[in-house]
Design a protein around this nucleic acid. Sequence first.
RNA 1: GCACGAGUGGCGAAACUGGUAGACGCAGCGGACUUAAAAUCCGCAGAUCGCUGAUCGUAUGGGUUCGACUCCCAUCUCGUGCACCA
Length: 833
Amino acid sequence: MMQEKYAPAEIEAKWQTIWAEQETFRLGKRPEAPKWYVLEMLPYPSGALHMGHVRNYMLGDVIARYQKMHGFEVVHPMGWDAFGLPAENAAIKDGVHPAKRTQENIGTIKAAMLALGYSYDWELEVNTSEPAYYRWNQWFFLKMREMGLVYRRFSRVNWCGESVDGSHPCFTVIANEQVADGCCERCDSRVVDREMPEWAFRITKYSQVLLDALDDLPDWPERIIAAQRNWIGRSDGAEIDFAVAGDEPIRVFTTRLDTIYGCTFVVVAPDSRAIRLATDAQRPAVRAFVAAAEAQSKAERTAEGAVKEGLFTGAYAVHPLSGARIPVWVANFVLSDYGTGAVMGVPAHDSRDFAFAAKFDLPIRRVVAPGDGSTEPEGAPYTEEGILMDSQEYSGKTSALARSEIAATLSARGQGKLAVTWRQKDWGFSRQRYWGTPIPIVYCDHCDPSREGISVPYEDLPIKLPEIETEKVLTGKGEPPLAKVPSWVDVKCPRCGGAAKREVETMDTFVDSSWYFARYLCPTHDKAPVDLAVTKRFLPVDLYIGGPEHGVMHLLYFRFWTRVMHELGLVNVDEPVRKLVTQGIVNGADGRKMSKRWGNAVPSTDLVNRVGADAARIYVLFAGPPERDFSWSDEQVEGALRFLRRVWNLARAFAPAEGAPVVDVDSPSARAQELRRTSHKTIKRVTEAIDRFSFNTAISAIMEMVNAVIAIKDPHQPGEVEQIQSSVRIVSQLLLPFAPHFANEIAQAYGATVPLEEQAWPTFDPSLVVDDVVPYAVQVMGKLRAEVLAPRTATEAEVRAIAEGDQKIQSALRGKVVKRLVFVPHRLVNFVV
RNA sequence: GCACGAGUGGCGAAACUGGUAGACGCAGCGGACUUAAAAUCCGCAGAUCGCUGAUCGUAUGGGUUCGACUCCCAUCUCGUGCACCA
């Protein structure tokens, strides 16, 4: 018996209980069925679930339920990216231990997710801050170290350590994202570059593979593919040696080998080599220049409008082909960690070199002319390719030809070779933080005097984070937090048993999110991170949904990690995800991205309390296509609720008596037949719309069908009530992915004995989705003049005859000669006069 | 600077491989029911004009085509990512 008024709160609680009791979403119930793995990026458990999250998880939930109705064994897990900075920073402020805060937040968010009716299998839940999870990060670390994929290096990092106006620096390495205008986001101290030892993954070993495999990801968004290509940044060029008297040659990298005769100076990065190269007279000045450049933080150096500083070293190099004497400069715009850390200056054909030459009055030598005879720009560099000139035997050749010939010459003389440079760097993952995975390394002065780090034996894993007195350890000052816990730091060396110290750094949280998708499949497995027997069945992920802001970091790291897992025999796929969908940003009412930071976040609980989960779900999906941004609008929410009420009232008005049999009527009325056709057409439309992730049009198709049902007033002719009941039943099925509590409630009132999730998705009768009579648009010279109806089977001549019989067409054609007729079956005819 | 998106009514949007632009919804207007309101139901609704009809209209300018939101060229605006990357 359906209640008179649609009461979402009751219905939603009822079905959430039924799903939990019947374990509707439990994995493992369809062992014979094909699998479908739908995954949403695991959230960082911050305070509350807001509408941005709701939308993200909705997309996955629609597909999960939809594929379940298609008979798949659906994997749909959820977990927590529980380590990370916000909890630790909050702890520094208020002394609440990150674990406690994180646990509370998880409770809040999970409750909000349950209230929305998401179809997760909570048995698969993963929490990355638990030893049962992060021990495997440590295991991976050790394995990857054995594979040569983990190493220790000195690296230039962002160091928050210089007080400004009495600020209290954090004295730690911070991520690029936390640097704002050269200052620390949290304490406003100045951020400086610092050379420090750190641990790194050798991801660049996979640069080529990761780049090539992008071609095999047809179901990833173009923009993400492009972003990754960009990030990996393969650059094909050449390395050339410029000889220097009394020193090693300067090796430069260039992509424009064809312009080599235009080289009038060489520039090296401000580092120790520049000092070494300098003549005695210039050395003090160069030393000062290098010191000044190093004092500059990365932020300052790359800031908009940063000045190009340069200084002549006094030294000269020899041009490898012309033998000319080339001055060697040092400049702040040359990066020591890209290419070879030195460039050849070709002011005539590179805009930056041009500006540099102009500023320091260096000669400009043109060696490439436009190939098409167009005039060269005056007072500006010509940066296109063309025909060489003033380049000895290469003059007159095209840029492309000259490049390969010059490369061959240099290579034969041992002065250069074709070379590839990558923008992508290795992944430094050391963090001077507490709330992360401890790095399983011990330093022993006796066994390891060079401090390479001794790997902790596998059997000692997990190395658990120590219990701490939060206020004493998480201060945001001084050494890394773990260094302040002597009981944890002081250990016995695994080799000699003598006194040793633990590594006090923890891992970047991107490590956690690099393999969680595989762990979901076997969250309690304790022999290895994952079980190949299980990952074989369920990987790759069929659909991955998340924000486009993870386009390069996370989505590249986890592609890398998947390859490592394959090599370790843990999975049998190279790529983790077949199809990727990135959803648009949800903006608050103020037009800014909805987030806690701006105070414009609408918590999901507010909305669910007000209109119910189903209306909230319909609203976020109906608002627009998933990949597009949208702004929060309160009015549209009412529309979603109104729609559900309309359906409710319709369903209630025609609900069959309990146990009443479904009757087929022999000769239904024309109206009933028409409604039947509409229903089948709608099944087709909704199915196709969901298949192309057009959830807003899927919902609009259902709305249209509901409108068509409601339009039948006073149904008393044969078969009409029966057809309406049948249509309502179809509506309930089509609504399931969008408004699952509501749909189930209606279905139950119409005789369903098991949840709709366990039933099959409705199918349509192909003969019912085509009409016998179709409308034709009639155009004259491409302009719409009339509309006529013609039988579906009508020929061109027949449709023409019908069209010509139309009054408006007759007057439009009067006095004109029809030269040609364009005929598009079932669509239009166009008279060309 | 490079790369990738996006620009359609008052608003969110639709139009699938070129074929009736604006479906569906929000806000709005008119009507019914009601003592009244809410809720609900029915209807209208791109703009303009000489209003039984015609003209214009998908950021702007051009092009291809019988026909262009859709394809091509150029331009503008907004968004996102990367960026002294040689």
